[in-house]
């Protein structure tokens, strides 16, 4: 197990290095320079600034400097935010995004799974159609529509939760709900389909023949088997939620990474683009690793034996 994980970590490093390389050169293909908007600077001043940040060096030199910095844990300084370190900015901005992402993921998958389960148990009944309807609505209507509705009713009309800003836990409630609707829909659909499939399999008949009741069949025998495919989709879902969403963060005035990322691309803030991309990639690869380990936990057939 330890060997497996350390092997995976080495691969992870190689992957990150490749991503860093590709992002670096792709980024350099972006039109303009970090200074293109700063028309107040004279040409000499611009030249001095470019020189200072090493942007006049030949591309390979810039690249090797960057990679060397990476290995020392240095992501560089941001151009647009008063020369602050990219690492600091990332950490500051990732907090809110990841809080919202994690909360909505947990809330969404739990509610979604329950909905899907109920739908599968009462297959083709009123509850099933109800949960299908919720899933279709959740999947097809964009989250900002829900955001507006939530703000209006829960925030303005009934005054239950603050409408926007980021000053405490109660401020996370509305954006979390708005973000959770999508995972609810996805998890509900998957759970229903998988559970129905599992409930039709032979070993469920075996369980029923043993005298296990309906509840036991679903929870003791069905759930774990139905969860295997669900785990697969939760990975990418987790990443997309945790890396922040531009629209939701804007609507609720959350100081998250989503908004930051788009802004830094528009201004050619190379270090921020690189740092954020690398961080997202890292998160993605990490989550894939966690999911692979989760598979083993849920499904004994893919569990690693001691010998491996």
């Amino acid at each position: 197990m330890v060997r497996y994980i350390s092997e995976r970590l080495v691969y992870m490093l190689i992957t990150l290095l490749l991503i860093a390389t590709m992002t670096f050169f792709l980024m350099k293909l972006l039109p303009g320079t970090p200074l293109s908007a700063a028309d107040k600077l004279s040409e000499e001043q611009q030249a001095i600034v470019l020189e200072k940040y090493g942007l006049n060096d030949p591309l390979p030199v810039q690249y090797f400097n960057y990679i060397a910095g990476l290995f020392q844990g240095d992501l560089g300084l941001s151009f647009q935010f008063d020369n602050r370190e990219v690492t600091t900015i990332l950490l500051e901005r990732m907090g809110p995004s990841m809080t919202l992402g994690a909360q909505s993921l947990i809330l969404g998958t739990i509610i979604g799974m329950l909905l899907g389960l109920i739908a599968a148990i009462y297959h083709n009944g009123v509850v099933d159609y109800g949960s299908t309807l919720i899933a279709v609505i959740g999947k097809s209507i964009p989250s900002f529509v829900f955001a507006g509705i939530l703000q209006f009713y829960l925030g303005v009309q009934w005054g239950l939760f603050p409408v926007a800003l980021w000053e405490g836990w109660e401020y996370t409630v509305l954006p979390t709900i708005a973000l959770a609707i999508f995972p609810i829909a996805i998890a509900a659909r998957y759970m229903r389909t998988e559970m129905l499939e599992v409930l039709g399999s032979d070993f469920i008949t075996t369980a029923r023949a043993k005298g296990v009741n309906r509840f036991g069949v679903v929870f003791k025998h069905g759930l774990r088997n139905a969860m295997i495919p669900l785990v697969t989709i939760i990975g990418p879902l987790a990443v997309s939620l945790m890396t922040g969403t531009l629209v939701i963060e804007n609507i609720f005035s959350v100081p998250g990474i989503g908004e930051q990322f788009v802004k830094s691309i528009n201004t050619n803030d190379y270090p921020i683009i690189m740092g954020t991309t690398l961080f997202f990639s890292f998160l993605f690869i990490l989550i894939i690793l966690i999911i692979d380990l989760l598979y083993g936990l849920i499904d004994p057939r893919i569990r690693l034996t001691e010998g491996d």
């Binding site: 070993f203 075996t206 088997n225 499904d299």
Partner: peptide
């Protein structure tokens, strides 16, 4: 049951 390959719960 007939088919031993599918009659047992694979995760139990």
């Amino acid at each position: 049951f007939q088919d031993p390959m599918t009659s047992l719960n694979p995760t139990m």
